[in-house]
Design a protein around this nucleic acid. Structure first.
Length: 432
DNA sequence: TAATGCGGGAAGC
DNA sequence: GCTTCCCGCATTA
């Protein structure tokens, strides 16, 4: 938005404060969900944005009581690092996600560094005048207002899903190994030459909690960490997991799509009943445990990898470029569509995924497919300080799941079929 | 088991 | 009075 060409309404949508008695309701464009909000940002999300509904952040944010039930306040916990400042292979540092639960965090800090077995330490966030960065959430009308105060003065921890995946892998290492051994046998899925990710590195990254570049977390989340343009409020609903775009006004900011991995819960009584601040329209049509639907989607070339009911294995994807080069051949297996080098600059995909139907499900699957079969657009590797040194190393890709009930063989059959389906690709990937 | 949200209460300014 | 932090509790996944 051009600052110098603002109408009164536009100014209103920019000048609000989370503590205002009345927040703007004539918002023309809502923001896309930001996974890594930093500095003093304000965003207006659609009340139907599931990630916003759940007040998600990839920073480890804990609830802070501000004695104001209308405004949810969360403060950053920082990042857990190795007190020896050890580096793993390729210079990777250990940046664990602090557990949100106090007891779990204490327990976590008693553990040893997964890399060097040294003691772990928590780097507290002091980015807001010596206090933790705080995020404020307020549901008002059709919108969810977000405001952050402070600038994180510590590295990004692993994302929530990365941490969950790490825990899950630790709990069920055999299942994942088995999955990977099957993956390796799958003829349809081949890493790019020279980009063969090792299972060891994958499991190390996931199990041992090393900070993954955003690309990793993106695909753990089921989408690229990126920015997406604000969508209009009417069509914003259900645009889960859209490929994001860069915020042209802020090259460092991230505007993330609603989390693909978000379970499409049929209801969230806690959210919907929250002080009448939210007008819930959470009519999830893609059930968390609806594996049958998932199967159908996969058979149609859709991907529900972001649904937690998805398969519990990790795909050894190659470097994820977050770009859609013109030379991409949709007929190629999607793994091989991925160029080795990330784009030099963010791309805008503002209008790539308009939710014309207002159909949560359709939008979701389209986007999922995009993320799965075609490199997501609009990702800036510069966004992630950890990505830069690692661009030459393979990125791994995992399909998050909380259960082991997924039939891996079936899944791979679907994958093999889907990724060779040109028509489907052309139909479902409007980037072409 | 952990994440999340709510709320009481203490402490510092 | 405001803010931050700690704690316990309930709910959810």
């Amino acid at each position: 938005m051009e600052p110098g060409n603002l109408g009164a309404e536009d100014k209103e949508t920019l000048s609000w404060d989370i503590n205002d008695m009345k927040l703007p309701q004539n918002v023309k464009k809502t923001d896309w969900f930001q996974e890594w909000p930093d500095a003093y940002e304000k965003h207006i999300y659609s009340s139907e944005d599931r990630s916003a509904q759940r007040h998600l952040s990839s920073w480890a944010m804990r609830n802070t009581n501000n004695h104001n039930s209308r405004i949810l306040k969360k403060s950053c916990l920082g990042v857990v690092v190795c007190s020896r400042d050890c580096s793993a292979a390729e210079g990777r540092k250990v940046y664990l996600r602090p557990a949100i639960c106090d007891k779990a965090r204490q327990k976590q800090q008693r553990k040893r560094c997964p890399n060097c077995d040294g003691p772990l330490k928590l780097i507290p966030c002091r980015g807001h005048g010596g206090f933790p960065v705080t995020n404020f959430w307020r549901h008002d009308g059709r919108f969810i207002f977000f405001q952050s105060k402070g600038e994180h003065d510590h590295p990004k921890p692993e994302t929530k899903l990365e941490a969950e995946a790490r825990r899950a892998v630790k709990k069920t290492p055999t299942a994942s190994s088995s999955a990977y051994s099957k993956l390796k046998q799958s003829p349809q899925i081949k890493p790019l030459p020279g980009e063969t990710p090792s299972w060891e590195s994958l499991t190390w990254s996931l199990q041992e909690g090393v900070q993954l570049p955003d690309s990793y977390s993106a695909h753990l989340l089921g989408h690229a960490p990126q920015q997406k343009a604000p969508d209009d409020g009417a069509s914003f609903s259900g645009s889960y997991g859209l490929g994001g775009i860069a915020d042209p006004a802020d090259p460092t900011s991230t505007v993330d799509p609603p989390q693909l991995h978000e379970k499409c819960r049929l209801s969230d009584s806690r959210v919907s009943s929250s002080e009448d601040l939210l007008q819930p329209s959470v009519s999830g049509v893609f059930g968390y445990s609806d594996l049958q639907t998932w199967n159908k989607n996969m058979a149609l070339g859709r991907n529900a990898l972001n649904d937690s009911g998805g398969p519990n294995y990790f795909l050894p994807l190659t470097s994820w470029p977050y770009d859609c080069p013109p030379s991409q051949n949709p007929s190629e297996p999607f793994f091989q569509q991925i160029p080795l080098e990330p784009p030099a600059a963010k791309m805008s995909c503002h209008s790539l995924w308009p939710n014309q139907e207002g159909d949560l499900y359709e939008e979701k699957v389209r986007v999922d497919f995009n993320n799965y079969c075609s490199p997501p657009t609009c990702y800036s590797p510069q966004e992630d300080p950890f990505l830069l040194p690692y661009t030459s190393q393979p990125h791994q890709y995992s399909l998050p799941s909380k259960s082991n009930k997924w039939d891996f063989d079936e899944e791979m059959r679907y994958l093999g079929l889907d990724h060779c389906n040109n028509e489907m690709l052309l139909n479902l990937c409007p980037l072409r």
